[in-house]
């Protein structure tokens, strides 16, 4: 049975490599019972989205109106 601490490491690594079947199963079982870690997982995805958006935003935001 995973601890929350182990689960957070696994969820971070899931951003960088595909988890094995065994890892996925362990994680799913943990998440089914742990709201905190479910929130953590959503937040990991959010961080990725924010980082991608940060660059895209710098790169393509339409801010012509703010420029003199």
């Amino acid at each position: 049975m995973l601890t929350c601490k182990e689960a957070t490491r696994m969820m971070s690594e899931a951003q960088d490599r595909p988890l094995s079947v065994g890892e996925r199963l362990q994680l799913q079982m943990h998440l089914a019972m742990c709201r905190g870690c479910r929130n953590f997982r959503v937040q990991m995805d959010f961080l990725r989205t924010a980082c991608r958006r940060y660059l895209g935003r710098r790169g393509s935001e339409e801010n012509d109106s703010r420029m003199p």
């Binding site: 601890t3 929350c4 709201r35 929130n39 937040q43």
Partner: peptide, 16 residues
């Protein structure tokens, strides 16, 4: 985390 490596209640991630 608590010593058993589960979230302390006050630090448990909440929904954003």
């Amino acid at each position: 985390f608590k010593t058993n490596a589960h979230w302390r209640p006050e630090n448990r991630p909440f929904g954003w």
